[in-house]
Amino acid sequence: MRIAVEDLDVALSGRTVVSGVRIVAEDGEIAGLVGPNGSGKSTVLRTVYRHLRPHAGRVLVGGTDIRALSPAESARQVAALPQERGSDFELSVREVVAMGRTPYKRAFAGEDRGDAGLVESALERVGMVGAGRRRFSALSGGERQRVLLARALAQDPRVLVLDEPTNHLDVRHQVELLALLREQRRTTLLALHDLNAAASVCDRLHVLHGGAVVASGTPREVLTADLLAEVFGVRAAVVEHPLTGDPLIAFDHRAPAALTPVS
């Protein structure tokens, strides 16, 4: 399902933090939001999954304004893994993942066989299939991250929205998560700090700076040495990854570039 953010303005505490943002992820495409801290990535994503209401603009899911949908219908279309993640759930891992089935259930309805299958499948896909009875609050940060991703997958949405999904994950589980996203080919909008991970997993990148989109295109089109200097304030060379052929950014940690404004 195609998702499009059109002319989005968001103000927080009377201050505009996102202005005129246009972002798109085509059906089955992984679109990444990258940019420095404070550039507006999380604000855009919070608007997509209805945590924030925009001052202007709209979010279209399959051509429908997401604000025109009921909360349950919206949750059936879009599942989110936000940065603000609960750590005090006094629930088992399986119970947390089963929460993803809530948008499909009537009040007080129990779990059916289809729900159980989706929950077990989601746990298996994130490598937590044997952890269903463990307390969520007793898990490590990386394990919690994987369980919350399983909850989003169990929701069986048309669109996934992920805010820094590789946070707290070790290298192996970062690689496995990114491979999972590519394998499922579900329309996905995600924010990443790791530019090399973004270059590897994303079909399209949108670069945010100062609350506005300053570049959009494929990773090869967007991730240039000039843009990295202007937006991120770093000196880097962009080369070909020897294993995958993706763009690979080699940063110069000895001589960072001077930060220059983006015109």
Rank of each mutant, 00 (worst) to 15 (best):
T47Q: 06
L8K: 09
N196F: 06
L205R: 01
A225H: 12
T64L: 15
E84H: 11
G100H: 03
S70M: 00
H206M: 06
S263V: 06
L153V: 01
G62E: 06
D65W: 09
R58P: 08
T102N: 14
A258D: 06
E90K: 03
A107H: 08
T188G: 10
L60S: 05
H168K: 02
V175H: 11
L123V: 00
A138H: 10
S13Q: 13
Y49A: 00
V18M: 12
A107Q: 04
V129S: 15
A80W: 02
V159P: 13
T224V: 05
S121W: 12
V93I: 00
G142E: 09
V207A: 10
G35I: 02
R94K: 09
L8R: 13
L12Y: 05
D156Y: 00
L195T: 01
H241K: 04
F232V: 01
H253S: 01
D115K: 14
F251Q: 02
D112M: 06
Q83T: 07
L190K: 04
D252R: 02
V201I: 00
L243E: 08
R235H: 07
L248K: 03
C202P: 09
D246Y: 02
L91F: 15
R58Q: 13
L153T: 00
M99W: 02
R46K: 15
L45N: 07
A197G: 05
A56G: 06
A152H: 09
G14Y: 08
A215D: 05
R158Y: 10
A138D: 14
T166S: 14
G210K: 09
T218V: 01
A80C: 06
R133G: 10
R46H: 12
V129I: 09
V96S: 11
T102H: 14
A225S: 15
R135M: 13
Q184D: 03
R172A: 07
G132H: 14
E124A: 14
H241F: 02
S137H: 13
F232G: 03
A258K: 10
D226H: 14
R101D: 01
S74N: 10
V17H: 12
L177G: 03
M128F: 10
D246T: 03
I3G: 04
L148F: 12
Y104T: 00
R134A: 08
E111W: 13
V147Q: 13
E84G: 07
V18G: 15
N196D: 00
V61F: 13
A236V: 05
P82K: 07
A255T: 12
D115Q: 05
D203N: 04
P242A: 01
T102S: 14
G142L: 11
V97I: 12
I30Q: 00
A257K: 12
D203E: 05
N37P: 13
D194M: 11
V5Y: 07
P82N: 11
K105I: 03
E230Y: 08
A31C: 15
S19I: 02
V97A: 11
E176P: 04
D163G: 05
R67K: 00
V129C: 07
E111I: 00
A107V: 12
